[in-house]
Amino acid sequence: MLQIRGLHAAVNDKEILKGLDLVVKPGEVHAIMGPNGSGKSTTASVLAGNPGYIVTKGDIRFYDKDIVALKPEERAGEGIFMAFQYPVEIPGVSNINFLRTAIGETRAYKGLPPIETREFVRMFREKQHLLQFSKELAERSLNEGFSGGEKKRNEILQLAMLEPRLAILDETDSGLDIDALRIVSNGVNKLRSSANAFVLITHYQRLLEHIEPDFVHVLYKGRIVRSGTKELASELEIKGYDWLNDLPAALTDQN
């Protein structure tokens, strides 16, 4: 579903991604790991179409469609979802009203009629239960005054409601206590299917103990320098990232 080839991207004229390649197929879970500053969050932002990030070279294909020129809302319509590392607060806009709008808009993009209220409510109850999300939180303003864990659970609740084909989780595990991590992981595991795919961006292996990835990639200086299966994550946990400094320059720097 997703093919990234030779992707270069810059923010504020500084090149962060320097030739990223990645192929994701339906039903797969990929983990992208790496030290701070390696370009993990940039990868998520570029895939989601954040206007602050400029693709300077390479291409991103989603179901054979070049999405580089698509606006973020169009990418969302295509079925790309990003769970934010720092979800923003939007005062005065109720969580539920926001969800309804988002579902309406993504459906409209696909040429589907608006969701019926009864169906929306049924779906919401089900997903709310899955993420142990209280009614009170659902009716509050979007993320306003939510704790870190509540915000992250809300991200996954939105994921569950929007049913994307590709979900990118940008450091969803950061700042989560063990209970919240379990709820979030459990939610993601239940949402996994042969039709969708997940890209987990994380600094630590601990998320991967809960959500088992099919592939693990190590991102360093804007490129994937190693790929493997879940064992690679355990290896990283033991070795840390320092060994990356010893990699031959030819592997990491292709400018």
């Binding site: 179409g49 954040n50 206007p51 606006k71 809302e73 969302a76 005062p91 808009e105 929007l162």
Partner: peptide, 21 residues
């Protein structure tokens, strides 16, 4: 951008925020 990422275009995003406000 957050609202865009959820499929809501900028015009509607502004309207949503302003109406909330």
């Amino acid at each position: 951008f957050y609202l865009n990422q959820r499929g809501i275009n900028t015009e509607k995003a502004v309207a949503l925020i302003v109406n909330g406000y």
